[in-house]
């Protein structure tokens, strides 16, 4: 990539920027007939984790996406894109549904991380994410994840345990926010720039380490959506040539190497 010499801090800022393509724009562009489905069938619905069924190419797919909201009200309702246990259980339900009806899964990720609130802890945030990790390792259908802004820790991993993980050029994927990292290691959240540098959270660094498979260049929204559609369709077609057993063996090898 031409952009190899970018500073980590710049990319972190670009990933969080207001100009970043929104969940709404991606969903509308990629899945115009998306029928959104709600609820975890246990306790409620979490607007920070959206999902549903859409036509993609010639077939139905299951779509999962985090959402940061677009105005103040929806930003507060989504905890600025941080899913609650309800959200992760909704994702689990929709993944199971996709497996039952043999639909590929596409997940779109832009989250600072799982919501760290008192209620989220009491509703079992850890258990909810763990259930997604367990389920994703056994899904007999292709699953492709795209990190398009922030890929924050376990909250992002819960939706990125499939066969391919791709990232937009201006996005990052990390164990923790650079602020949290600096705060834990150096007791100083202001050293986030330095943290971003040592964390190796840039797409090109993650690609080199085999954490992700592809970096998608970020262009005008219309062009970006066209590129994404083409590449996702091609990749789903490739993955669908595998038997479910071959698919699971490959997926297991993908994570076993770390």
């Amino acid at each position: 990539m031409a952009a190899l010499k970018r500073s980590a801090q710049t990319v972190v800022q670009a990933a969080r920027s207001d100009k970043k393509i929104t969940t709404q724009a991606l969903l509308a562009g990629l899945f115009p007939d998306l029928m959104e489905l709600f609820g975890d069938r246990l306790s409620g619905d979490d607007p920070a984790l959206r999902g549903g069924i859409a036509t993609f190419g010639h077939q139905p797919v299951t779509v999962l996406s985090t959402d940061k909201g677009s105005d103040l009200e929806s930003k507060i309702a989504t905890h600025f894109g941080s899913p609650t246990p309800t959200g992760y259980r909704k994702a689990l339900r929709l993944m199971e549904q996709a497996a039952k009806f043999n639909r590929p899964i596409i997940s779109l990720i832009n989250t600072p991380g799982a919501y760290p609130g008192q209620s989220a802890e009491e509703q079992g945030q850890g258990a909810a994410i763990a259930a997604d990790l367990l389920k994703a390792s056994q899904l007999p259908v292709p699953m492709i994840s795209l990190i398009f802004g922030e890929g924050g820790s376990g909250g992002a991993l819960a939706l990125a345990c499939g066969d391919r993980v791709w990232m937009l050029q201006n996005s990052f994927y990390a164990i923790l926010s650079p602020e949290g990292f600096a705060s834990i290691l150096w007791k100083d959240a202001k050293k986030s720039g330095q943290a971003a540098k040592v964390m190796q959270l840039l797409p090109e660094q993650l690609l080199a380490q085999g954490i992700i498979e592809k970096i998608v260049p970020e262009k005008q929204p219309a062009t970006l959506i066209e590129t994404l559609r083409e590449q996702l369709l091609a990749e789903i077609a490739r993955l669908q040539q595998l038997t479910p057993t071959e698919l699971l063996v490959q997926r297991q090898a993908r994570f076993r190497k770390f």
């Binding site: 763990a130 990790l133 367990l134 994703a136 390792s137 056994q138 820790s153 376990g154 991993l157 345990c161 994927y173 990390a174 164990i175 923790l176 990292f181 834990i184 290691l185 964390m199 190796q200 959270l201 993650l206 380490q209 954490i211 297991q252 994570f255 076993r256 770390f258």
Partner: peptide, 26 residues
């Protein structure tokens, strides 16, 4: 929790171990 000094490689362990747990469970 995660080993900060190993960054994303620490995160990948969550998925790797979960796969082994799933196979044991199956």
């Amino acid at each position: 929790g995660a080993r900060m000094q190993e960054g994303i490689h620490s995160l990948m362990q969550m998925a790797k171990v979960s796969q082994a747990v799933a196979a044991h469970h199956a």
